[in-house]
């Protein structure tokens, strides 16, 4: 392919490497290889138990099909509770997220308040809802109350964060205009800040309702009420046909709620 006759030294062209420094380039590959060896070597795999997996999977799926909808009543109670948890937690969470968002917005909150607001939001976002749920179950006992508390905290973390960012991006001129009229802090908040973030807040609430519904299905696994508990029990009793029935309904409900929430948000925005 090369043409030695082309007089002067043939001009070469190589694709310039993605990372120019060769040490860094090969170093990264080495780091990746070492990491993989380390991670795979240090993780405790129980190969004997894993080897039993395939026959077990066959048994589980064999037992799971066809899904059994016989105990529909039990399922209905579970889903009803999940809905209730999601609704109440969304309401509480969205309402409470507003003061926390105001606290966590750098442009309207004084420094100490800002730090407090940020800390609350960071902490509630760091923990997976299931961990929060397990703590609330330990504190207030099994049942939907723990679920509501969990998802309220979860909503505060998420809605509060996005809302705080929204407040930080508002048009500051409107705030100045309100201040110029001699309005106090709360009046400024209500006339200059809230109208600007309201559309976002409504959209976020719909999003959060959908999200809480998904989460309410899993907090039940650790005893915080709702369909998750029913699912966990079915699994625990090797009642796979009932478990798969619950799973199918969960998927259906999630798809429907995602569709509704998306439709409403599109309408509002």
């Amino acid at each position: 392919m090369t043409r030695p006759e082309s007089g002067a030294a043939a001009r070469l062209w190589r694709k310039p490497p993605f990372i120019a420094n060769p040490v860094l380039r090969y170093g990264l590959w080495l780091v990746l290889a070492v990491y993989l060896v380390w991670a795979l070597g240090s993780l405790p795999f129980n190969w004997e138990r894993i080897a039993e997996g395939l026959p077990r999977a066959a048994r589980i799926f064999g037992g799971g099909f066809p899904p059994s909808f016989e105990r529909a009543e039990l399922m209905l109670t579970g889903f009803k509770e999940s809905f209730q948890i999601a609704i109440l937690a969304t309401l509480l969470g969205v309402l409470l997220s507003i003061p926390f968002a105001v606290m966590a917005a750098r442009n309207i909150a004084p420094m100490p308040v800002y730090l407090l607001g940020r800390a609350v939001i960071i902490i509630s976002r760091s923990f997976h809802p299931v961990i929060v749920a397990i703590l609330f179950v330990a504190a207030v006992g099994f049942g939907p109350l723990a679920g509501i508390l969990t998802l309220t905290l979860y909503s505060i973390g998420f809605v509060g964060k996005l809302l705080a960012e929204e407040i930080e991006e508002i048009d500051w001129g409107q705030v100045e205009a309100m201040r110029a009229t001699g309005a106090g802090f709360l009046a400024t908040l209500f006339y200059a800040v809230f109208p600007q973030i309201l559309p976002r807040q409504v959209g976020l609430s719909m999003y959060q309702l959908d999200s809480n519904l998904r989460a309410s299905a899993v907090v039940g696994i650790v005893g915080a009420g709702g369909i998750g508990g029913t699912l966990m029990n079915a699994f625990g009793r090797y009642d796979y046909d009932f478990a798969f029935a619950i799973l199918l309904i969960i998927i259906a409900v999630i798809l429907i709620s995602e569709g509704i929430s998306g439709w409403v948000r599109k309408k509002i925005w």
Partner: peptide
């Protein structure tokens, strides 16, 4: 995509623990 997204991680975990036993796999 839809079936993967609609089932929560912890529910997937429940299923795989039942199949492969407790552990990192």
């Amino acid at each position: 995509l839809v079936s993967s997204r609609s089932v929560n991680t912890i529910i997937w975990a429940l299923l795989f623990v039942a199949i492969f036993g407790p552990g990192v796999l």
